[in-house]
Amino acid sequence: MQATIEVSGLRKRFGRTPALDGMSFTVQPGQVTGFVGPNGAGKSTTMRVILGLDAAEEGYALVGGRPYASLRTPLRHIGALLDAAALQPSRSARNHLLWLAHSQGLGVRRVDEVLEQVGLTSAARRKAGGFSLGMRQRLGIAAALLGDPPVLMLDEPVNGLDPEGIVWIRGFLRSLAAEGRAVLVSSHLMSELQDAADHLVVVGRGRVITDTSVADLIAATSNGRVTLRTTAGEPAMSALAHAGAIVTVTGRDTLLVSGLPGERVVALLNANAVPFSEVSAHRATLEEAYLELTRDAVEFRGETR
């Protein structure tokens, strides 16, 4: 069983509004893939198409190489959390998982295992209707884990969680990926994925804008720039400019150097006996990168709505 999601050329419109416009990407095993884009970019629709809930007009989506509808016990292939509030309020957490387990040919033992895994054992026999949002998210994740699937897909799992819950979920997702699973996590806020995602699929207007690793994206945005802290601004600027760098003053005692790697900057400053207190690679935030990428998509959305 391949631990992948493959989405290719999905197109779908709701009325005259295109929701998916050639959405294509692949989710690889062993890492957390962030599925990012502004609200309305087509993230949820894509997930519903992957799960066979919505039909695409064109294109296809495969889970472990197979269309969802062909899976006889789908929860053993992919675990999904779409809407944590989708519960029968009078049914207990354990019974909610029990009917799902029975639908996949699984027993009550597996139910107790996943309850333990998400830390809901003590609340297992309580009515799900009385659960806090955080507990519902945990219950939804327990349901996703029920079939021990190689692929996990979670729609906005961080939404509405308290800081403690956010930390828990990040760690949990990382550990699932570390076990070799493919994990796709959607969010409309890039900052939520900071420190959680290894790979990013950035979408806007129903199609993929960027499909890249987090490291590459940050490097591309950082663009090899170096921050230099020195009290000797003048000599530093002349020495570096002489070597071909573009130097900008960004503050009192700080310069932004581009066009030279950090080691060359240090070597040049030493050779010219320019004193400095700090040389560091400039690191763009994920948020910065994301805002730059999705600016067009957001503007487009503003025009059509």
Partner: peptide, 18 residues
């Protein structure tokens, strides 16, 4: 109808695509 009201129908259809 309880399943439609809560959106639980989607959970059901994810578990049982047929």
């Amino acid at each position: 109808t309880a399943e439609y009201r809560r959106g639980l129908i989607r959970t059901t259809l994810i578990a049982v695509p047929r």
